[in-house]
Design a protein around this nucleic acid. Structure first.
Length: 433
RNA sequence: GACCCCAUCGUCUAGCCCGGUUCAGGACAUCGCCCUUUCACGGCGACGGCGCCGGUUCAAAUCCGGCUGGGGUCGCCA
């Protein structure tokens, strides 16, 4: 065993999904380990046999993998109950613990404890609320603080990086380390992530599990980058940073002390930045898989077609789920005109559209540049400004007032569909008469 | 209530440790202009902040104290 090696851990409890706060804690541990060529250990704290669920464990592991936070070792506390009991017995033998009502209690005296925290500096606790702590419950399972201390010591964790909500557990745990004769590790208590409003996370703030973010089409790189910005700054006015780069410059001592409110706006911006940054091929594959998973692709949509869709939407969405709404016209044949398009369709331009259809039919190479030329020529011939035709045509093709460039849209849909949708617009006007 | 933590634009932050170079820099959001067939992208610009009160000092966002405000913890949950 190399005692000088950096070893940190993330210790989730499978009593719920991996949420934002947990993922951020895991990330800082992972980055810290990476920054010092250390080991990142995953410890599943499944001591509460009632509340721990296989489903949650599976989800936590999947989310960790999806985020790319690979671990070097994994342990399950449920497999280590004997170890905790053994150490508890030892404390009883040394008269530092006693058995009562089937449980084992660790007793400690009120004494001033100083915690040297990497984020906050020295913190003194002058008194503790209790004088005893359950370390083995009457059902034989260990109490949190005890199993945590025993494991961190046995697993040679030398820096405990966790949320600030654990700060008040720390003096108690230090007392346990001392009682057991273990070295006390270094501590780093991360500021909490707050709800957008500033309060406690999860209460009245919908999306908190990592799975939900994946479902909404956020990229893992963007999520990771955003978490990094919550409580840490790469400096030099930088916002966009990969985990690889972060590992090179991360310093736990530079982590902020203040709780950070989660901002969906900023996450959306970052996600959009990452979407724009990746290659068209990569983005195309991403949305192909995503839309397929969401059953939003039409039968005929192949990878080539999706790539064209990708091209026109890459600079227009924040997250992949935006596509479900915005790219519907690419995969569905029936176009319904949105409510706010009525004004654009108020003038019947049937004769002009009929002419447009004729011109379109005559185009050999149905490509955006050519289409635009023909379109503008027709507008000129009719003595109309191009936009007079552009807007109703966009509504005819997409059902919406806003969308990608019209000529790219036409190329994307192909001559047949464009003509069919323009004819549908003419019949819409006819019916209105 | 007890114990503990924190405090720079609406939000995330740089600066604070090593006081003057800062009438506080960046980003998101918002608003405006340019580009333009719409939306977006891109470019340019605007708005907006050192919680309050004292102290130390020639000088404080930066150091000290108090106040106020926010947060966390007080389970045989983790």
């Amino acid at each position: 065993m190399d005692w000088s090696e950096t070893r940190v851990r993330f210790a989730p409890s499978p009593t719920g999904y991996l949420h934002i706060g947990g993922a951020r804690t895991a990330l800082f541990n992972w980055i810290y380990a990476g920054s010092r060529a250390g080991k990142f250990i995953l410890r599943i704290e499944d001591t509460d046999t009632e509340r721990s669920k296989e489903e949650f464990l599976k989800e936590i592991l999947e989310s960790m993998e999806w985020l790319g936070m690979n671990w070097d070792e994994i342990y399950y506390q449920s497999a280590r109950f004997d170890i905790y009991r053994e150490y508890a017995q030892r404390l009883i033998g040394e008269n530092k613990a006693y058995e009562k009502e089937g449980a084992i209690f660790f007793k400690y005296s009120f004494e001033s404890i100083e915690v040297d925290d990497a984020v906050r500096g020295k913190i003194s606790f002058r008194e503790l609320p209790k004088a005893e702590e359950v370390i083995i419950k009457s059902n034989g399972t260990p109490g949190y603080n005890f199993s945590c201390v025993v494991d961190d010591a046995l697993m040679n964790i030398n820096c405990v990086i966790r949320g600030e909500d654990h700060l008040s557990n720390t003096p108690k745990q230090i007392l346990m380390y001392r009682a057991l004769g273990f070295d006390v590790p270094h501590f780093a208590h991360l500021p909490l992530i707050l709800s957008p409003g500033g309060g406690r996370l999860s209460k009245r703030f919908g999306a908190t599990s990592i799975r939900e973010y994946r479902d909404l089409g956020y990229l893992p790189q963007a999520l990771l980058n955003y978490f990094l910005l919550l409580g840490w700054s790469p400096g030099s006015n930088r916002e966009i940073i990969s985990v690889e780069e972060a590992k090179k410059i991360f310093d736990i001592n530079q982590v902020n002390k203040t709780g950070a409110a989660f901002s969906l706006d900023k996450l959306n911006w970052l996600n959009a930045e990452y979407i724009r940054k990746i290659s068209l091929e990569e983005f195309s594959d991403l949305i192909y898989n995503y839309l397929k998973e969401k059953a939003c692709l039409s039968e005929s949509a192949d990878r080539e077609y999706v790539k064209k869709v990708a091209e026109v939407f890459q600079t227009r969405i924040f997250k992949l789920s935006d596509l479900i709404e915005w790219s519907g016209f690419c995969f569905r044949d029936s176009i319904e005109y949105a409510e706010d398009t009525k004004k654009i369709l108020s003038t019947d331009l049937s004769p002009q559209i009929k002419l447009l259809i004729e011109r379109i039919k005559a185009i050999g190479d149905f490509e955006a540049g050519v289409i635009e030329k023909e379109f503008r020529r027709l507008a000129g011939d009719l003595g109309l400004k191009a936009k007079v035709l552009v807007h109703p045509v966009r509504v005819a093709l997409t059902g919406r007032r806003i969308g990608p460039g019209l000529f790219e849209t036409m190329e994307l849909l192909g001559k047949q569909k464009v003509i069919a949708r323009l004819e549908h617009l003419i019949s819409y006007w006819a019916k209105k008469q």
